[in-house]
Computed example of a mutant assay.
Amino acid sequence: MSATIHRIGARPEPSLEPMIKMVAADMNLVNSVILDRMQSDVPLIPELAGHLIAGGGKRMRPMLTLASAKLLDYSGNRHHKLAAVVEFIHTATLLHDDVVDGSDLRRGKRTANIIWGNPASVLVGDFLFSRSFELMVEDGSLKVLKILSNASAVIAEGEVNQLTSVRRLDLTEERYLDIIGAKTAALFAAACRIAAVVAERSETEEMALDAYGRNLGIAFQLIDDAIDYASDAATMGKDAGDDFREGKMTLPVILAYARSEGEDRHFWREAIAGRKITDADFAHAIELVRSTRALDDTLARARHFGQRAIDALGIFPAGDARDAMVQAVEFAVARAY
């Protein structure tokens, strides 16, 4: 692999716009596939699925499939259906996640489970998973099927792993990174890697794109977890403090608890046990996360993984596609600043 191609943070105002513009025409075709394949004779299915799919997200994961294809100068059209697969897998997991977490808001809108109820959300999530596998089979590549189906299984494992670690003060940073590597980064990695498969590129290029996506996914989740202790609902599109009130052991909490003693350590025990969940308690948690530098160190780790993602692109030729993918990493990390 070549030397570092760009230092993260060197660009003053990174933007996702170069990637959005680069893949705009392809994304229109992906959206057509999504709209077509989420249809059903059962009206509730497209209604509920459409609520989340049209919910204002940036479609980061399918964009990564399209951007990776651009990076490789792929001139076919298989990546359109596969990018739709990636979005369906992501949407299905969001529907299931909101039921598990009991979430009220996503991207500033009421969640599907609040509007239609938990059973409908779970079942429509299952429908979208099924549609994604139909599209994979239509593509006809056993390798693509293996990569995406494995990612689906790993995501589910990560979610179960996280579920069993809620309110567990003994959760280590290592296990936490395993959890987010599975529940978030696995789909980022697969989304990028499949572009190399359809473009019939080498194993080296395939695994470089996998590394790019995986490290970007970890950085992305670390920033999400940091923002919960650094922002408000208007910025986040969800209620600030959701993770805190749900007793989720994210990295800011793991580090803050490890660095606390006496009354502060007692506070974390009470809070994670669910006995301190008021706004004042959350404000105190933010204060502790900041004073122990747990927030700063979480952001530093995000920058580390972001740099690893950027470095993974070093084997590819310089150009607009590579620069857009580098900026996407910088943008993901800069969200917390």
Rank of each mutant, 00 (worst) to 15 (best):
M1N: 05
H6R: 13
R11I: 13
L16P: 00
L16S: 10
E17W: 04
M22K: 04
M22E: 10
D26V: 05
M27W: 08
N28A: 14
D36W: 00
D36K: 15
D36H: 13
E47M: 12
A54R: 14
G55F: 02
G56V: 07
M63T: 10
A69C: 15
L72T: 07
D73C: 08
Y74C: 08
Y74Q: 04
S75N: 11
R78N: 10
E87L: 07
I89M: 12
I89V: 15
I89T: 04
H96W: 08
V99S: 11
S103L: 07
W116P: 04
G117H: 06
E134R: 08
E138A: 14
S141M: 09
I147R: 09
A156N: 10
L163T: 13
T164V: 13
V166K: 08
R167N: 11
R168P: 00
D170H: 10
L171S: 07
T172E: 00
Y176Q: 00
I179P: 02
G181C: 01
A189Y: 00
R193H: 06
A196S: 14
A196V: 02
A199Q: 01
R201K: 15
S202A: 10
E206M: 12
I227C: 03
D228H: 01
S231L: 02
S231G: 15
A233W: 04
D239E: 12
A240Y: 01
G241Y: 00
F244H: 05
F244A: 07
E246H: 06
K248D: 01
M249Y: 05
T250G: 03
L251R: 13
I254F: 09
I254H: 01
L255E: 07
Y257G: 06
Y257H: 13
D264K: 12
E270M: 13
E270D: 12
A271R: 02
R275E: 12
D281P: 00
A283H: 11
A283S: 14
E287W: 09
E287G: 11
S291E: 13
T292E: 01
T298I: 09
R301A: 11
A302T: 02
A302C: 10
H304M: 12
I310L: 07
A312D: 04
L313M: 04
I315A: 03
I315S: 05
F316I: 03
A318H: 12
D323T: 12
M325N: 02
V326H: 01
E330I: 05
E330P: 00
